[in-house]
Amino acid sequence: MQIFVKTLTGKTITLEVEPSDTIENVKAKIQDKEGIPPDQQRLIFAGKQLEDGRTLSDYNIQKESTLHLVLR
Rank of each mutant, 00 (worst) to 15 (best):
S65F: 10
Q62T: 11
L56C: 02
L67Y: 01
Q31T: 14
G35Y: 04
R42N: 08
L50F: 02
S20H: 12
F4C: 02
V26H: 00
L67T: 02
G10T: 14
Q2C: 02
T66D: 04
G53S: 11
T12F: 04
P37W: 06
K33L: 09
L50P: 01
E16S: 07
D32N: 12
K48M: 13
G53T: 11
Q41A: 10
K63R: 11
S20N: 15
T12E: 11
T22A: 12
S65R: 03
Q41P: 02
L8Y: 12
K63C: 03
H68G: 04
V17T: 14
P19N: 06
P38C: 02
K27I: 03
L67E: 01
L56N: 01
E51L: 08
G53V: 13
V17E: 01
D21E: 06
L8D: 12
L43H: 01
Q2M: 15
T66R: 06
T7M: 06
V26P: 00
T22P: 14
A46K: 06
T14F: 14
K48P: 01
G53H: 08
K48W: 15
G35Q: 11
E24L: 10
A28H: 11
I61L: 04
L15Q: 01
L50T: 04
L8E: 15
P37T: 11
E18R: 10
I13M: 06
Q2E: 13
L15D: 00
P19W: 09
S57A: 07
L50A: 02
E24C: 03
N60L: 06
A46G: 11
D52R: 05
Q41S: 07
P19K: 05
T22R: 07
P37A: 14
D39L: 13
I23E: 01
P38K: 11
F4W: 09
L50H: 00
K11H: 15
L67F: 05
V70R: 04
F45M: 09
Q31L: 04
E16W: 09
T12V: 12
K63Y: 07
R54C: 02
L43M: 04
V17Y: 08
F4H: 12
T7F: 07
Q2K: 09
T55A: 08
I61E: 01
R42P: 01
D39A: 10
R54I: 07
S65V: 04
T9R: 12
I36G: 03
T66H: 15
D52A: 09
E64D: 13
S57Q: 15
L69Q: 03
I30Y: 03
R72A: 09
K11D: 09
Y59S: 04
Q62C: 02
R72D: 12
K48E: 10
E34V: 13
Q41R: 02
L69F: 03
Q2D: 12
T22M: 08
F4G: 04
D21F: 10
D32C: 03
G47S: 09
G10V: 05
N60T: 12
I23K: 01
V26N: 00
E51C: 02
I30G: 01
G47N: 14
Q40F: 13
Q31H: 12
G53E: 12
I30D: 00
N60C: 03
N25R: 11
K48V: 12
I23V: 15
N60I: 05
K63Q: 09
Q49K: 06
D21R: 04
T12S: 06
T22L: 06
I13G: 02
T55M: 03
V70C: 02
I3M: 08
D21C: 03
I44N: 12
Y59P: 00
G53A: 06
G35A: 12
E18G: 13
P19F: 14
E16G: 05
G35I: 03
K6L: 07
K11I: 11
V17G: 02
T66K: 06
Q31D: 12
R72H: 06
Q40L: 05
D39I: 14
A46Y: 08
K29M: 15
T7L: 05
K63I: 13
D32W: 15
E51F: 07
A28Y: 09
S65M: 06
A46H: 15
Q41M: 12
G10M: 05
R54F: 14
L56T: 03
R72K: 15
V5F: 04
G35F: 05
K29A: 09
Q62N: 10
L69R: 01
V70K: 05
Q62H: 11
I3L: 10
P19H: 14
K29E: 09
L43T: 01
S57E: 05
I61T: 02
I3G: 00
S65Y: 06
I36D: 03
F45D: 02
K27A: 02
V17W: 03
Q62P: 12
Q41T: 11
L67A: 02
L71T: 13
L56D: 00
S65Q: 13
R54V: 11
H68C: 03
V70Y: 04
E18P: 04
N60E: 06
D21A: 12
D58C: 02
K27S: 02
Q62I: 14
H68E: 09
M1F: 14
V70E: 11
K6R: 12
I30Q: 00
T9F: 09
L15Y: 03
T12Q: 11
G10C: 03
